[in-house]
Design a protein around this nucleic acid. Sequence first.
RNA 1: GCGGGUAUGGCGAAAUUGGCAGACGCGCUAGACUUAGGAUCUAGUGCCGCAAGGCUUGGGGGUUCAAGUCCCUCUACCCGCACCA
Length: 948
Amino acid sequence: MDFGHIEAKWKKIWADNNLYKVEEDPSKPKYYVLDMFPYPSGAGLHVGHPLGYVGSDIYSRYKRMKGFNVLHPMGYDAFGLPAEQYALDTGVHPAKSTSDNILRYRSQLDNIGLSFDWSRQVRTDDPKYYRWTQWILLQLFLHYYDKTADKVYPISQLIEIFETEGSEGVNAAASGHDQFTAEQWTGMSKTEQSTILMNYRLAYRKVGYVNWCAALGTVLANDEVKDGLSERGGFPVVQKEMLQWSLRITAYAERLLEGMNTLQWSESMKTVQRNWIGKSEGAFINFQVVDQPDVTIKVFTTRPDTIYGATFIVLAPDHDLVPALTSAEKLKDVEAFQRKAKEKSADQRMAGQKKPDGMWLGTYALHPITGDEIQIWIADYVLKDYGTGAIMAVPGDDTRDKAFAIQYQLPVVEVIDRSQVPGAEMGDREGIMIHSDFLNGLQVPAAIASMLDYLEKNNFGTRNVEYKLRDANFSRQRYWGEPFPVYYDDAGIAHAMEEDTLPLELPDLDDFKPSPDGRSPLARLTTWMQPYPGITRETDTMPGYAGSSWYFIRYMDPSNDQAFASKENIDYWQDVDLYVGGVEHAVGHLMYSRFWHKFLYDLGKVPTQEPFKKLVNQGMIQGIVESVYLFKEKNDGKSHFISADLVVERNIPKEQLSAIPVHIDFVTDYGHPDTHLNENGIAAFIKWRPEYSDALFETNTGIHHFADLQNVKLHTLSEIGKMSKRYHNVVNPDDVISQYGADCFRMYEMFLGPIEQSKPWDTMGIEGVNKFLRKLWSLFFNEQDEWIVDHQTPSDDAQKALHATIKKINEDVERFSFNTAISQFMICVNELRKLDEHPAEILEPLVRTIAPFAPFVAEELWQLLGHTESVHVAAFPDYDEKWLVTTSITYPVCINGKKRGEINLPVGTSNAEIEKAAMDLPEIIKWVEGKPIRKVVIVPDKMINLVI
RNA sequence: GCGGGUAUGGCGAAAUUGGCAGACGCGCUAGACUUAGGAUCUAGUGCCGCAAGGCUUGGGGGUUCAAGUCCCUCUACCCGCACCA
């Protein structure tokens, strides 16, 4: 079998015939299988990337053969930080490097034999594409969200309301709560009006604290920041006040939460999104300030029932009311505290978790119910941007408040008795209220309800729902992204560009480096920034997730220049039936896409509320990281390596050693616990890293100098880790394919284990799949390479093997269990080889069954079987029950659940006969030893159990 | 700390509804063929035991005629969020 020849041949024929091109066809049911499109990074694909692609490809091919009209497209997420960062690293213009990388990706993807309809390819950096990204952004800019109707309306409609009724009747998602009459509105200047409208637009510009990453020279969204570092590159991120574009995703918080209930996503994926949205229900409660009747502090709490335990108030250090609430004698100290708090990085604040830091403002508030005077504090454990930035502290039932109260010796009042609830802890919604006046004796949930009613009836507060979800920052001070289709007039008022002037193309720029001062590279191009007097363009660009938030719709109608996709095509393809991609997009891409999709739904542009019905998260393929140990400090001035087994033996602390990742091609037992460098390996290592040319190697045969290596085995440290250039363990699919063929590569990736699971790339097992493919081939050709398929009548056993396989493959593919499907193929082929039959009647449907998995070999065999049409447009075979029915069943006979014998009985034997036959078995008689049988359980077609 | 997940041979794993645990593959062992090999084929391979047999799905307990699967509990590891009021 010459797979290289076969693959080259069919790749060409498929491309020449547009085999995988798909048209809208109302006569067939549609099915949309989508892969997350890749960033075309310079590193190319490694064997981990195609894991999901192969899975979705098998499913697509299977669905196609099952009669579905399958949309299975691919494209490139070409804009954004990764592409630009690569361009910066290499000094090549992003447009060029991106195009080069795309060519490389394409060739790698083609090598795997993926059935993408390339005529539908999209590139987010193509002006024909980002024209519509800009168009959607404009729609966001030109609409606001009405919370009463749960719908979006044009901003022009909001202006009409303001002109006729003022802000009174407006219940919209907004940044502020402006209150004005119609007269006041019409009396405002254009600038004032524009500022107010910005508070309502779904895409808006606002001054605020943002995640500024100086090393990357740009602002980042919350999901792009991990533990105070940028997700990309791991650079420090600080809070900086800047004028920025944002998207009002918070308007959709509740719908994003609710929509999840209809989705077939993994529980963990849904949980991550739910946590990110972070809904909590509770109440705002107002606290009057003593001696300042016109000042109230509004706190948010989810536990209004504990209000009798509220013994002090805590504000965030940067809360707006702090200056007004600080007494004269405390002013200096408070200001110093505020400065200190502001300087603290995220890390330091986390360290402060154990030791709360706070200060009394010197003033008091009135407890709304008891009328007690309680102290007002600031503390860094209260965050400005959650709730109201102020809390009522209940040290009796909140661990943080309690720690704080102990630290500063503030009063503690217990309000819940949990002595009757074993295992319940502070903060749990269990127990009985105490020291709480009319709530006393109530269970916590009842007390919450009762207190909410009480607060609202007496105007002490109102019910409220809070979300952790923040509006998404949408400005990047970078070159490689979509320009904003907006301009500013001389008054600084933002205006939407006219739709028919789109796209606003990204100008060519040679110096695209970010600037450390936060100005976008585009600002250097003054002729572009100010094309006409009185018009200034936005020089920030959109973030990476802009183009990826809607690309799946563009595939439905990729070359449309009248709309982002035609209504007919969207109505036909509807939504993505199956989306395959990595878990790393849990809160970024998947959240933004759902948000944009819901917005487009509200505009009446798409027919579904959710874009991705079913989501499968493929695992990562990990690499084996091999390292050699080097002592960090040895006083002889030489590098001193030590074998990993000695490190364990002598229990050498890891701090004294550094592990240096090594290339492993020159080592014998790749990836196994006893992996080592032998003499040749060490020689190769020294050649590769000449700085170690006079190193010493300590092994269990003593200390060796490089010059006199003999019988040396330097054991390495084998760990499972990321596949990365750094660890010299990247496996390129092209290399695997050239050695074993694409079909073998595809099947092996699937055979490795369940698709959702992460697993190390272990080359040992690939031989098994390779062997299987050769065995498959040997059903068609003998050792002399002669065609041996005949037209004899197949045996019943052969029929049974085939039809059992078809049935199992059907079930396994439907539930995405490709590893078990491949096992079944192996069983089937072994069976047929044993039977030594080669009937076309069996082999023809077998080829069709295996075609989604091994498209090249199947196609070749299909042609050899005399077909002129591709196997990939043939029908997936149906199995025939008649070959699967059995005439007799072998029952295991158990005594008390333990198998003691076996009995073969014809189908349809009555229970009484089965029972009698079982008890007459000699083994059973031996085991029963005449003891009475208490009970006989017969599970139909399964087993017989006797209870003695 | 909160939330989610996982745990099965030497290894990757299977067991779809509570019904013969370990399919399939790797590795290993023995044998055949051999220009002596990282090829191919055949057989064996969970553990203990000479055997009969016993034990076995992270540990402990429970429900059931029957538990990898259901319930309780403990442990370890992985992932996400993290002063969210």
